[in-house]
Amino acid sequence: MTDIDINTVRRFSRTVSQRIGVLDADYLGSGRPLAEARLLYEIGEAGSTIRDLRSRLGFDAGYASRLLRALEADGLIRLQPDQTDARVRRATLTKKGLTQWALLNERSDKLAHSLLAPLGESQRARLLAAMAEVERFLRACALTIEIADPAAPEARACIEGYFSELQQRFEGGFDPEQTVSAHPEELIPPAGYFFIARLDGETVGCAGLKIKGKTGEIKRMWVSPSARGLGVAQRMLEAVEAQAKDAGVGRLRLDTNRTLTEARSLYLRNGYKEIAAYNDNPYADFWFEKRL
């Protein structure tokens, strides 16, 4: 990245923050700063647990607690134990809070209208398309990939999502018992590794790495439909390759089905070469290898 790149990002941030009122202590005439107004919006009509609010907004415990106390002191929210888990606190809007929430929504719509109204039709279309593109890439910036326990609930949920999709996409369905194994014990160091991708606090993908000697095999690579188009698979593949190198793996292998055209494209553009079959996976139509 160049100094010009950095300055472009900084200038964009200054322009956006000024135009949407981030600098105003009285955001949208609500009498409160943006952080409190946003927290009120996220609680919404259905309410939310404090844990989920912190995860979605990236607030640390202390900051979230201060904001919530301010809203509670103004009579806008009610804090109480969650009905499904008394150890977790839940925030709900009071009648006054619902009124404020509706007012903020109305004023937010008017602010959006004021940003678009001065532009011609083609300029509006270009701005909206650019906004969608910027949002997509900013979301991608928030992606994290970590090594996780393959037996943990979030890991199992990912793998079940993966199996469910294969069941729908494969012509004859999919039976996990008939394919090459990737059991939890095979994805724990030093036998292997399991990776979880998270975005805005939500688990959006997984990948497994099995290791045997100097050869590694990629298994269970999957991205949730909600996060596709953000480069999640590419980032996971890079994480798997980096970990494989650290573990002393000299080559990576994998197999894939002909219906998974996106996966084949991913591997080919990352230097994987098609090879002869190295296993008897009944669902495999292509086999790939890459020297690290």
Score class of each variant (00 low, 15 high):
Ile77Phe: 06
Ile20Ser: 06
Ser48Arg: 12
Leu76His: 11
Thr15Trp: 05
Ser55Asp: 14
Gly75Trp: 09
Asp60Pro: 06
Ile50Gln: 15
Leu76Cys: 06
Gly31Val: 03
Val16Glu: 15
Arg56Glu: 11
Leu76Lys: 08
Leu57His: 12
Arg14Val: 00
Arg38Met: 04
Ala70Gln: 15
Leu67Cys: 10
Ser65Asp: 15
Tyr41His: 10
Arg69Tyr: 04
Glu36Ala: 02
Val9Tyr: 14
Arg14Trp: 02
Arg10His: 08
Gly58Gln: 11
Val9Asn: 13
Leu71Met: 08
Gly47Glu: 13
Leu40Val: 07
Gly62Tyr: 07
Leu79Met: 14
Ser30Glu: 11
Ile43Thr: 13
Leu28Asn: 05
Leu39Arg: 07
Ser55Ile: 00
Ser55Glu: 15
Ile50Asn: 14
Tyr41Phe: 03
Ser65Ala: 10
Leu40Arg: 09
Leu53Gln: 11
Arg69Phe: 00
Tyr63Gly: 02
Gly58Tyr: 07
Pro33Glu: 11
Ala37Tyr: 03
Gly75His: 08
Leu67Asn: 09
Arg66Tyr: 02
Phe59Thr: 07
Phe12Gly: 07
Arg54Gly: 07
Leu57Met: 14
Arg14Gly: 02
Gln18Leu: 00
Ala25Cys: 03
Arg69Glu: 14
Ala35Ser: 12
Ala70Ser: 14
Ala35Lys: 12
Arg32Gln: 11
Leu53Val: 05
Arg32Glu: 14
Leu39Thr: 15
Arg11Gly: 01
Thr49Gln: 10
Pro81Trp: 04
Gly58His: 09
Asp24Val: 00
Pro33Lys: 04
Ser17Arg: 12
Leu34Ala: 10
Asp24Ile: 00
Ala25Asp: 15
Tyr27Asn: 04
Arg10Trp: 03
Arg10Met: 03
Asp26Cys: 00
Gly29Gln: 09
Arg10Lys: 07
Tyr63Lys: 08
Ser30Val: 02
Ile77Thr: 14
Arg38Asn: 08
Ser17Trp: 04
Glu36Asp: 13
Arg66Met: 00
Gly31Lys: 07
Ala61Pro: 06
Ala37Val: 07
Arg19Asn: 06
Ala46Leu: 08
Ser13Ile: 02
Ala61Ser: 13
Leu76Ala: 07
Leu34Asp: 11
Gly47Leu: 01
Gly58Ile: 01
